[in-house]
Simulated assay, not measured.
Amino acid sequence: MTITVAHIQPIIAILAGILILVMPRLLNFIVAIYLIAVGVIGLGLFRHLS
């Protein structure tokens, strides 16, 4: 299985969800990192991965 940009967002969401369940205090940081990652991916800065 090759991992493309389309696979990165669900993987990040699953990891963020697990971390939030384990350590609720990390919620602000996880949401901020997730939003930054989604923005960078949305801008197409990782096009070389696909």
Results as ranks from 00 to 15, higher is better:
28 N>F: 13
12 I>A: 12
20 I>L: 13
11 I>D: 03
30 I>R: 00
46 F>P: 02
29 F>A: 13
9 Q>V: 12
25 R>P: 03
43 L>I: 11
17 G>H: 14
26 L>Q: 13
26 L>A: 13
13 A>E: 14
12 I>S: 10
14 I>F: 06
9 Q>E: 14
47 R>D: 08
5 V>W: 01
20 I>M: 14
15 L>I: 07
30 I>N: 01
27 L>N: 07
13 A>P: 04
10 P>F: 07
2 T>A: 12
42 G>K: 10
23 M>D: 15
49 L>H: 05
32 A>L: 11
31 V>K: 13
31 V>H: 05
15 L>K: 14
36 I>F: 10
15 L>P: 04
25 R>M: 11
7 H>P: 00
31 V>L: 12
30 I>E: 02
46 F>Y: 05
21 L>Y: 02
9 Q>T: 12
29 F>Q: 04
22 V>Q: 03
2 T>V: 09
43 L>S: 03
12 I>D: 02
33 I>P: 00
47 R>M: 07
21 L>H: 01
6 A>G: 10
39 G>I: 09
3 I>M: 14
33 I>N: 01
46 F>C: 03
29 F>H: 12
16 A>W: 05
41 I>E: 08
22 V>N: 05
9 Q>M: 14
33 I>D: 01
33 I>M: 04
19 L>K: 08
28 N>R: 13
8 I>A: 12
23 M>A: 13
39 G>Y: 05
4 T>K: 11
23 M>P: 00
29 F>S: 07
48 H>K: 06
4 T>W: 09
31 V>Q: 02
10 P>Y: 09
18 I>K: 06
25 R>Y: 07
9 Q>D: 15
9 Q>H: 11
15 L>H: 15
32 A>C: 11
15 L>C: 15
21 L>A: 15
12 I>R: 01
20 I>C: 07
48 H>P: 00
6 A>H: 14
2 T>Y: 05
40 V>T: 10
31 V>I: 14
48 H>G: 08
20 I>N: 10
24 P>L: 02
4 T>H: 13
18 I>R: 03
46 F>I: 04
42 G>L: 01
24 P>Q: 10
18 I>C: 06
27 L>A: 15
15 L>R: 10
7 H>G: 09
27 L>T: 13
42 G>F: 01
32 A>R: 08
